[in-house]
Amino acid sequence: MTLPLIPPMLATPGALPPAAQDARWAYETKQDGQRVVAYLAGDGSVLLRARSGEDITAAYPELGPLGPVLGATPAVLDGEILALDAEGRASFQLLQGRMGLAHSPALAARRAARVPVHVVLFDVLHLGTDSLLALPYVRRRERLEALGLDGPYWSTPRAIVGHGAKALAATREHGLEGLVCKRLDSVYEPGVRSRAWIKIRNMVSEDVVVGGWLPGRGRLTGLPGAVLVGQYGGGRLRCVGSVGTGWSEAERSELAGLLAALATDVCPFDPVPAARGAHWVLPRLVGEVRYSVRTRAGMLRQPSWLRLRPDLAPEESAARLPDDDTPV
């Protein structure tokens, strides 16, 4: 049969539901991977589509055996493709080396041998001849778990009903990306960013030193579009990423004046980051940023500016950074 094309339902950023409503929600671990909708046609094949609708099947050859696991029963499954590090945690940095290879099957196969992926399946949208979109989450979850989808490269993660505060605390304790809260009575809304699903990302804040900036474009022409930030480790200022969000227009204009006063021709970072068009500044400005996790190279993922820290000296912004000389 021809399966319907179903764009994935999206979660809205937010906070935990009120304690009085806790029992009306299920809680799933938020994974740091690539969203995927898997189409099992019932003939042994599997088609993987990214959130954009792009066919990414060839990028993940190790997921091919998922196709025949339900026999002749067609299904559409919602999930997330992960690359796991040595501690079994999802690493987006590892996954990046596997993404974008749908048009290079040979390269995808070689990388699959070195860094295999794992897909966690958390929803079933179509089963047999029936659409399950109008069923409440709790019923879809029952149907999904009854399928027993646990294999070498795929699994069905556990969902917890109630106990949201404890679930969120557990994700923080184990260094996981966050939590997704799903209302038990919610239907599946294809392509919609719904309040029936709430995502909570665990964020960390740290102090960083501004060492450069990148020009803005469009409405930000003439202003800094992003600042390059670093932290001291091993006696040198190591670049840990670029920050482009978190300022109002007035704050960005004020920042532009501060950066202009500190302009220099010498890059303060060691090693020099690959940042075409960067303008360097003396490393005097300290700011506080919020981010989700660090990559293995020490880079900040999804950083956002919080505030300037004029009360701190640049040397106080130290962090545990990699000891090697790998450019970051």
Rank of each mutant, 00 (worst) to 15 (best):
A72Q: 13
P215H: 03
A20L: 01
R201S: 10
T29Y: 11
L82K: 03
R252F: 06
T29I: 14
P322F: 02
S292W: 08
E54S: 10
V286G: 07
P4C: 05
L300F: 06
G218V: 06
N202P: 13
T12H: 00
L176N: 06
R195G: 04
G233L: 10
G246Q: 09
R238D: 05
V161Q: 14
R111E: 14
D324E: 05
P271G: 03
P18S: 00
S205L: 11
I200N: 05
I198Q: 01
Y60V: 01
E316K: 02
Q302A: 15
P215D: 09
L176Y: 04
R193S: 00
V124L: 02
P152R: 15
R284G: 14
E189T: 04
G277Q: 00
V46F: 10
A170G: 11
V227T: 07
A38K: 11
I160L: 11
R276V: 14
L321A: 03
G222F: 03
L282Y: 12
I160Y: 11
A102S: 15
A15L: 10
E254S: 04
R141I: 10
A108G: 14
P327T: 07
A72F: 09
T171H: 01
K30P: 15
H118V: 14
L63I: 00
L262N: 01
V180R: 07
E288N: 12
G44K: 00
R158V: 15
D85A: 07
P157C: 03
D324V: 01
R139Y: 09
A263S: 14
R172D: 11
R98H: 13
H279Q: 13
A165W: 05
A26F: 15
L133A: 07
A159G: 04
I6V: 00
Q231G: 05
T326E: 15
T221N: 14
F122E: 07
A278G: 04
L144I: 04
D123A: 06
A20S: 12
A90M: 07
G191R: 05
V120D: 13
P157L: 00
P136M: 02
R309C: 06
L125W: 07
V138C: 14
I81A: 03
G53M: 02
L135W: 02
A86C: 01
P322A: 05
L308H: 12
K199W: 03
R238C: 08
P7N: 00
L237H: 09
E142Y: 08
G88F: 06
T2E: 15
V227P: 04
P271S: 01
L10K: 02
A226V: 06
H163I: 11
F269H: 14
L66C: 06
V266H: 09
G287V: 09
C239R: 08
R217A: 10
A19W: 07
V138Q: 15
L300A: 02
A260I: 13
V138Y: 11
V115K: 07
R252T: 05
M203I: 12
K166G: 10
A278C: 05
L5M: 12
T129P: 10
H163V: 08
A319G: 10
H163M: 13
R140A: 06
V36S: 09
R236M: 13
W154N: 07
L306R: 11
Q302D: 11
L282K: 15
P74M: 00
D311P: 03
V229Q: 12
P4Y: 08
L16D: 10
V46W: 08
L237N: 08
